[in-house]
């Protein structure tokens, strides 16, 4: 870890101004920042401490939906009664994240903005594409945990497990920057490596994610979030799947659906193909299976990760059925 100073700005505007400057990095929950600092992946001169900013705090009901401050800790999300009831997949994703100790430190904002877990990126001795080097080591190397969809030129998978669940509910990020504020759908917030392999989203210099806004859940919405992990204890998912289903009133027909995968692509991976398989149809195991198959259409596995394609199919099917409350036989 290099030496740095820590500045606590009095207000958001000042925070944004500071963060526009070179060598300034935001400090919130700090879990990922401290990790990156220890690995010398970042070496900022200044950390800008955001914990003093009230705009980033709290979970509030708003217009039937919820505003979740960026500093909200994961354990709060996991335990919040409204989230558990109306946004089940989000609460489940938060509960599955990391460890109890980390969930008590890590924030919603940090979960969305954490850097990839790729072992080349996190290795202090490897200067990879993501760190400004000239190549991604995954395709020619050890890629069992890497992208099967949307990869290239970097093949990381996006590490946020909240993001797929949030995207399944159409959440937006509320962002404040030097030139004012904006709101962007989370689905559009994350960017593929083709845009810029060195980053995972479109946050501009000086911008701060202030909150995540969840719209009111559609009437009759049900959701589920599942992870496939090698270990049942603390481990990163091989694949994650979030499913949000809206039933047509008075029938078994799926009126609307969102299927979002995690850990399969450099961004949280929404699958319109999978959604199409179930929207407008009565849901049963066969429909769910078809959606699973569709969810990985166009997958390009690397040398060691074709198994993730198989897992994704199953997990999407299971998430859909779980959301719908259908027991598999």
């Amino acid at each position: 870890m290099n030496r740095f100073e820590v500045i606590t700005p009095a207000d958001l505007a000042h925070a944004a101004r500071l963060l526009s400057g070179e060598g300034h990095v935001a400090l919130a929950g700090g879990v990922d920042v401290i990790d990156l600092l220890k690995l010398d992946i970042i070496a900022p001169a200044t950390l800008v401490n955001l914990k003093n900013l009230p705009e980033l705090r709290g979970i509030e009901s708003r217009a039937g939906g919820l505003r979740i401050g960026a500093l909200t800790q994961l354990h709060e999300v996991a335990e919040h009664p409204l989230i558990r009831e109306h946004y089940t997949a989000v609460a489940d994703a938060a509960r599955e994240a990391a460890t109890p100790q980390i969930r008590n430190l890590a924030t919603v904002g940090g979960n969305l903005l954490q850097r990839p877990r790729c072992w080349y990126f996190r290795h202090p001795d490897v200067h990879c594409l993501k760190k400004g080097g000239d190549r991604c080591y995954a395709p020619g190397g050890l890629n069992r945990y890497h992208a099967i969809l949307g990869g290239g030129p970097s093949f990381i998978v996006h590490p946020s497990n909240l993001a797929p669940a949030l995207i399944a509910f159409g959440a937006s990020a509320k962002i404040v920057g030097p030139s004012g504020q904006r709101s962007v759908e989370l689905e559009k917030f994350f960017t593929l490596p083709t845009v810029d392999p060195r980053r995972e989203n479109n946050l501009e210099p000086g911008e701060v994610v202030v909150a995540v806004e969840l719209p009111a859940p559609p009437a009759g919405a049900k959701s589920a979030y599942l992870e496939a992990r090698e270990k049942q204890s603390f481990d990163w998912p091989l694949v994650a799947a979030a499913a949000m289903l809206v039933g047509a009133p008075g029938s078994h027909t799926v009126h609307d659906a969102r299927i979002v995968l995690g850990a399969v692509a450099p961004i949280p991976w929404r699958s319109p193909d999978a959604e199409k398989e179930i929207i407008g149809h009565p849901l049963d195991a066969e429909r769910a299976r078809a959606a699973g198959e569709a969810s990985v259409r166009g997958a390009h596995p690397l040398s060691d990760n074709a198994y993730k394609v198989a897992i994704a199919k199953v997990l999407v099917r299971r998430a859909i059925l779980k959301a719908a409350g259908i027991e598999e036989t």
Partner: peptide, 13 residues
């Protein structure tokens, strides 16, 4: 190699 870019803020990549 030294980079900056961290949680809640992207310092220009």
């Amino acid at each position: 190699f030294i980079k900056g870019a961290g949680a809640l803020a992207a310092a220009s990549g």
